[in-house]
């Protein structure tokens, strides 16, 4: 018996300091489409990276570029960071680590995945997944006979999947200890939260889901109550005692 080849094309590249997976499942998907999608991630990185000397964010931080003269995307991202800070009662605060230097990286990752997904859809692609460092957007189906199935990594046992989420159009972000190489801290205390291992948020926008996941994780054991009131977004919180708290609409393993 000959196993059917996986439809489409897929590739992993390291951009923005993390592996990015683009998996296109449409029959007409090409390497050129992958090239353009990765070019878009690199363009976002060139504009927003705090590690690049000539990025707009670095130039704003050095006082060489006025905010009013920055690219519209830069202004939109920084404005969204502000609105998310108030939405999350200050728990998503990109200025908390260093008040003198802007670092919107916490929002840029999810935003860039949303953007690339929109570009792929605009090219007529229907079935694909994009993941940046474990934050995932899916569209359509993984196979003609199967929807997408996303495994959520167990927060402490690296070999284990804690839950499986199935669906067609999903955006899933997970925050936990050591996200992006450092502890997420409660901006109000400067300390890592206690009592919670990870928070996963699903909803229409990955940028927003990611910011909510960061905020809810920083809230510690107060996070689940806050996530219960979110509109259009669902949450799974894994507590330190391995209790798992789900909002009523959190997607399951059956689409």
């Amino acid at each position: 018996m000959v196993a059917a080849a996986l439809p489409g094309v897929r590739r992993v590249e390291h951009v923005m300091g993390m592996p990015i997976v683009i998996d296109l499942r449409d029959e007409g998907a090409s390497d050129g489409m992958l090239d353009r999608a990765f070019d878009e991630f690199r363009a976002v990185d060139a504009r927003f990276s705090t590690y690049k000397d000539d990025s707009e964010i670095t130039r704003i931080n050095r006082g060489e570029l006025a905010l009013a003269d920055a690219h519209a995307d830069v202004r939109a991202i920084l404005a969204r960071c502000d609105s998310l800070r108030s939405e999350t009662r200050g728990f998503f605060d990109v200025g908390a680590a260093s008040p003198e230097a802007l670092d919107p990286s916490g929002l840029v990752k999810g935003w860039s995945v949303d953007r690339v997904a929109a570009l792929l859809s605009a090219q007529g692609l229907r079935d694909f997944a994009v993941s940046a460092g474990g934050d995932v957007v899916t569209r359509g189906r993984a196979r003609p006979d199967d929807c997408w199935r996303v495994g959520i990594q167990h927060p402490t046992i690296s070999e284990a999947v804690a839950k499986v989420v199935a669906g067609t159009d999903l955006a899933i972000a997970t925050s936990g200890t050591y996200a992006r190489g450092h502890h997420i801290v409660d901006p109000h205390t400067g300390r890592p939260p206690v009592g919670v291992l990870s928070v996963t948020i699903t909803g229409p926008s990955l940028a927003t889901a990611d910011a909510y996941a960061t905020a809810a994780f920083a809230m510690g054991t107060n996070g689940p109550a806050w996530t219960a009131r979110l509109k259009g977004y669902e949450a799974m919180t894994i507590l330190a005692d391995e209790r798992v708290l789900l909002t009523p609409g959190f997607p399951g393993a059956d689409a």
């Binding site: 474990g134 199935r149 499986v164």
Partner: peptide
């Protein structure tokens, strides 16, 4: 059937 992709927080 299958898990196609993983969401996670750590390095």
């Amino acid at each position: 059937t299958h898990i196609y992709i993983i969401s996670g927080a750590t390095y």
